[in-house]
């Protein structure tokens, strides 16, 4: 291992990693995709959860959002008055900040700690998408971001996640399984016929949304790879931020399909995770995009991880 590698590892160990969030206000939703792309391009940001939230009481909501701000809410009333006239719908983007460059900013009673990277990101987004008057950016911010992890914890609890940032705890400490799976201590690696794996797709019926088991070919993912993009887009438009809270999008699916390298190189233990429901029949828990790509590539047998949940 050469000196540069050692320095990289040491630097990595010293870096603070924490949970943050970005809130896209109603008047910024039209720029949702562009804002999300900016986050995706940042290699120090790992998007974990995207949640669409309808607001019943904007005044109370603004109070909650700014409840742990460094400035007292009375100071912020003037600054946030414009929000009362915006569309009562927001999007939360929760992410892991892999390089939280925390530093003190501000003066006097407003002095506080914040992450320089998040500050830069916020300002970039605001410069691009805040409403403008006479060509000049207004302070009617389209996004708000957390100053510290405590604020992220508060917002998660407000949205109903009782454990706050604990919701992002991994279910198994030896493999990289997504946080939204129930914890499991035992898993099995097995080669199975790809057609024995069943996918779950949300389905709206009689005003209710329920998951429905479908074959891989019936998923919007497979259909998109077969040329039916609209069905995939419609699927995420309808259920994204509600039942589908991972950061998934069409370009990502195409990228996976174009570079399918299942269980090789750095993805050697990035298993498709399923649960065995009957002899030789498996319900997928994570990996619908990958399995659709593998099926479309003509693979008939795959190694999967069967989690004993």
């Amino acid at each position: 291992m050469d000196l540069i590698e050692v320095k990289k590892i040491l630097r990595r160990r010293m870096i603070i990693s924490r949970y943050d969030y970005l809130l896209i206000w109603g008047h910024g939703l039209q720029h949702r995709d562009e804002i999300l792309n900016l986050l995706r391009q940042d290699e120090d940001i790992e998007i974990l959860k995207i949640i669409k939230h309808q607001i019943n009481d904007m005044v109370r909501f603004v109070d909650v959002v700014y409840s742990y701000d460094y400035a007292p809410i009375e100071h912020l009333r003037g600054k946030t008055k414009y929000l009362l006239d915006t569309v009562p719908e927001v999007i939360f983007v929760f992410f892991r900040n892999l390089n939280a460059e925390e530093s003190f900013v501000g003066e006097g009673e407003f002095r506080h700690i914040e992450c320089r990277n998040i500050k830069r990101l916020k300002e970039t987004i605001r410069d691009l998408y805040n409403p403008k008057t006479c060509g000049k950016r207004t302070e009617h911010h389209v996004v708000h971001a957390s100053d510290n992890e405590m604020q992220t914890d508060v917002m998660l609890k407000y949205l109903g996640f009782e454990s706050g940032t604990g919701v992002f705890a991994r279910p198994n400490f030896v493999v990289d399984a997504p946080y939204h799976l129930a914890s499991f201590r035992v898993f099995e690696l097995k080669i199975v016929s790809i057609d024995k794996v069943i996918c779950w797709i949300p389905h709206r019926e009689n005003g209710q949304i329920n998951p429905r088991p479908v074959s891989i070919e019936e998923t919007p993912h497979y259909k998109a790879l077969s040329g039916h993009d609209e069905e995939y887009k419609k699927y995420f438009e309808e259920y994204g931020g509600i039942l589908l809270t991972d950061d998934q999008y069409l370009e990502k699916l195409r990228k996976i399909y174009g570079n399918i390298s299942y269980l090789t190189g750095e993805y050697a233990t990035n298993y498709i995770i399923a649960r065995e429901v009957e002899d030789d029949k498996f319900y997928i828990l994570d990996g619908t995009h990958r399995i659709s790509s593998l099926k479309k590539s003509g693979i008939d047998k795959i190694v999967i991880m069967i989690a004993r949940i």
Binding site: N172, F173, V174, V175, R185, V186, F187, E188, L189, K190, I191, V303
Partner: peptide
Amino acid sequence: YVEHGYRVVVST
């Protein structure tokens, strides 16, 4: 090995 029919069980 799994590709050739082995099963591997991992328990914590």
